[in-house]
């Protein structure tokens, strides 16, 4: 049962990723990205990390994909452009990508990954919360500062500078 479900999620993820880079229509690329994110959430479910699956969907599909779709839909020029998919350097690009792929493949196959024998005890949420406010409290606060900085930067970049009021 489980290999079958894993296969389905793999098709979703990899197919979505393949669709993102090969389709000419930018809007379809965003939809394929959503498909890929949903497949990733499926992986988290298989690994008994339900919370992370929900976080993936809430943050990636619910917020970031919506943001990407807004950006695509609001720019007319992007939508009407229809360039060919490959340019003249596709041979060199293929060689580089192939070398990179084999290097990436060699790393996970040759590392002895330490497997933990722990079984999820069912209260991983409580442990996550305890960890957030216990040993990892500094990164927790730094995350909020990171979000603040990101928001300030985004507002400064995206602000309508035609009528800036000084309050």
């Amino acid at each position: 049962m489980e290999p079958f479900v894993f296969f389905i999620f793999s098709i979703l993820t990899l197919g979505g990723a393949l669709g993102v880079v090969t389709t000419k229509n930018l809007y379809y690329a965003a939809l394929f990205l959503i498909m890929s994110f949903s497949g990733m959430a499926g992986y988290f479910v298989l690994l008994d990390a339900g919370f992370l699956a929900a976080v993936q969907i809430v943050v990636y599909v619910g917020a970031i994909a919506v943001l990407i779709l807004f950006a695509i839909m609001l720019s007319r020029k992007v939508m009407t452009r229809n360039e060919p998919l490959l340019n003249r350097q596709w041979g060199l690009g293929l060689a580089t990508a192939a070398i990179f792929f084999f290097v990436m493949l060699a790393v996970p196959l040759n590392v002895k990954w330490p497997l933990s024998n722990e079984v999820s005890s069912g209260n991983e949420l409580v442990q996550l919360g305890l960890a957030f406010l216990g040993s990892y409290v500094i990164p927790f606060e730094v995350v909020s500062i990171l979000l603040l900085v990101a928001l300030i930067g985004a507002i400064i970049l995206a602000r309508d500078t035609s009528d800036v009021e000084v309050e």
Partner: peptide
């Protein structure tokens, strides 16, 4: 009885938002 029941509700709502956007576009 998902142990992330409340969060699951929020996650499924995300697909509702996407459906609206897709329908409009």
């Amino acid at each position: 009885d998902l142990n992330i029941g409340v969060f699951y509700i929020v996650a499924i709502g995300a697909y509702g938002i996407l459906a609206v956007l897709m329908a409009g576009w």
